[in-house]
């Protein structure tokens, strides 16, 4: 029985890990630009597609340990590249506009990116399996196994959480981003180019989403619609944790990840409803989420 509990726990942590990467990007971008960026899901999908596409091309030519680095770099670079294009070109135009307008435009961007994915990679799901199978599985007793790649994803999630904490509290850009998030006029008035901070932050958020999409690919498939599906859960995370808060994204991801596991195991008909029920309970007591701020 204890090995089953271990599997549940690790399943929850696994889901939380890549969900955190998506929610963290969403929350960082919202924290600064106050834009609920629906296109964020598409950046996750881009990460997934680029990683799957590149692995399909070169996985046979490069030694296995490099795969894991390639996946992350490919996902990050792909999403960052799209971020560099869409922030200055499109997203910048909705900062400070009405929310309806922001949702409309960012959703339009999501759809455009999906169509581009269709044009570039075709209608069929893309998948690669080598990095997942290569690491094999560890026996956890009772004839049960756990795929080692799961630990890679979990470790990546925590490493990036740690990196983000360090980045936001210890680095120059992190502190300036926090300053601009609270007050962009004053931050500009002490000599910081806020436009470029927005772009950099957007790219950071995009990169996180791209890594999130890329690291799940060895165990999943890149298919159209990926971007919208992850958004549903990422929004649950930021609603629970509080939009704009990284700590909220981390705790929210763990709550959603674990709730999903409990839901699937014991209330499989209402797993998604269960997650939103928790979100509603949080909102009743803390309307801005656990760590949200005005």
């Amino acid at each position: 029985m204890s090995n089953i509990i271990f599997l549940y726990l690790i399943s929850g942590l696994y889901y939380a890990a890549y969900l955190f990467l998506v929610a963290a990007g969403l929350t960082i971008i919202f924290g600064l630009a106050r834009v609920v960026n629906l296109a964020h899901g598409a950046l996750y999908a881009i990460g997934a597609y680029v990683a799957a596409w590149l692995m399909g091309l070169i996985s046979k030519q490069i030694p296995p340990p490099l795969w894991y680095i390639i996946i992350i770099i490919a996902g990050a670079a792909g999403a960052a590249f799209v971020g560099i294009i869409i922030e200055p070109l499109l997203l910048r135009r909705v900062y400070g506009r009405l929310e309806e307008f922001q949702l409309l435009l960012t959703f339009a961007i999501l759809l455009i990116i999906e169509d581009l994915e269709l044009m570039i990679w075709g209608p069929y799901p893309l998948a690669f399996k080598e990095p997942y199978h290569y690491l094999g599985a560890v026996s956890i007793g009772g004839g049960l196994m756990y795929p080692l790649y799961g630990f890679v994803v979990i470790a990546m999630g925590w490493l990036i959480a740690l990196f983000l904490w360090f980045f936001m509290t210890k680095t120059k850009l992190g502190i300036i981003i926090r300053s601009a998030a609270a007050n962009k006029e004053v931050t500009a008035a002490i000599g910081h180019n806020v436009k470029s901070i927005y772009t950099k932050t957007f790219i950071l958020g995009a990169t996180l989403a791209g890594i999130g999409g890329a690291i799940v690919m060895p165990s999943a498939t890149a298919q159209l619609g990926l971007g919208i599906d992850i958004l549903v859960f990422a929004f649950a995370v930021v609603v629970i944790g509080g939009l704009g808060s990284l700590k909220g994204a981390l705790v929210g991801s763990l709550i959603v990840g674990m709730t999903r596991v409990v839901g699937i195991a014991y209330f499989p008909e209402i797993e998604l409803a269960l997650i939103w029920l928790i979100a509603v309970i949080v909102l009743v007591f803390r309307p801005l989420g656990l760590w949200g701020r005005e």
Binding site: S179, A182, N183, A189, I190, G191
Partner: peptide, 27 residues
């Protein structure tokens, strides 16, 4: 742009002082 003016030596104190709640004074 604003940040270029700041670099030329114009300091600015808004009416709410523009304090960042999340940052320490030295930050």
């Amino acid at each position: 742009p604003t940040h270029e003016r700041a670099k030329m030596g114009i300091g600015y104190l808004p009416d709410d002082m523009g304090i960042i709640p999340d940052l320490t004074v030295s930050e």
